[in-house]
């Protein structure tokens, strides 16, 4: 899971729907595992498969003309349930980047904690990217984490995206927050000394 992240150039899988909730990314009946493996098989399960397990031909993941490790989705991606299984499913399927104009808070953190980079772009950039992909399914996008830029290679249009310096460092070096917090336990102990005990 701790995959170091730098520059990624890839074609994209477009999902031009808004408010894609984490119940769609991975339905609750697939949350019963006690490890992090295998969730990619059930990514977008009910949009991707019929009841009998056969593929739904009209869903984008089943269209062989699309490929790549970048998912491009409509605004408010990952709303609803906090299930990190959604991020495990996205990472497990092989996505490294999700591009949208807006992410739900918890899901965004979950992606970052699994070394999947959520890239927030403007509405016009997103719309143009969907158009580019519709025209040419092989449209490439370059995501440059060190320089914090995302580029639609079809139009050459580029945008800056935000990520805090700490998290960027973590992603580029394969470090996670637990490592950091455990190193800082002494600060927690010092903090606790000044706490009121009845309110803990």
């Amino acid at each position: 899971m701790k995959q170091k992240f730098n520059v990624i150039t890839s074609s994209c899988i477009p999902l031009p729907l808004e408010n894609v909730d984490t119940d769609q990314i991975i339905p609750a009946r697939f949350l019963k595992a006690t490890d992090k493996e295998g969730f990619g098989d059930n990514l977008f399960r009910d949009w991707r498969y019929n009841k009998d397990g056969s593929l739904k031909k009209d869903f984008v993941l089943n269209d062989p003309s699309y490929s790549g490790c970048i998912l491009v989705a409509g605004k408010n991606f990952g709303s609803g349930s906090s299930r990190e299984h959604a991020a495990w499913a996205i990472a497990g399927y092989g996505f490294r980047v999700v591009i949208s104009s807006f992410f739900a808070d918890i899901h965004k953190n979950n992606e970052l904690n699994n070394f999947v980079l959520p890239v927030v772009v403007t509405e016009p950039f997103l719309k143009e990217l969907f158009d580019s992909i519709a025209k040419d399914h092989k449209t490439q996008v370059k995501v440059d984490l060190p320089n914090q830029t995302v580029t639609n290679m079809a139009t050459g249009k580029s945008e800056h995206f935000e990520i805090n310096g700490y998290k960027k460092h973590c992603l580029m070096n394969g470090l996670d927050d637990v490592d950091f917090l455990v190193q800082n336990r002494d600060k927690v102990e010092a903090f606790e000394k000044n706490r009121k005990t009845w309110n803990r």
Binding site: I106, N113, V182, V188
Partner: peptide
């Protein structure tokens, strides 16, 4: 507030979480 499983692990490990202030 709700958190993901990685964040549950953070709290189990340190009674803390790393968050941007909303």
């Amino acid at each position: 507030f709700g958190i993901g499983t990685s964040e549950v692990e953070m709290v189990l490990a340190s009674q803390c979480i790393l968050q941007q202030k909303p």
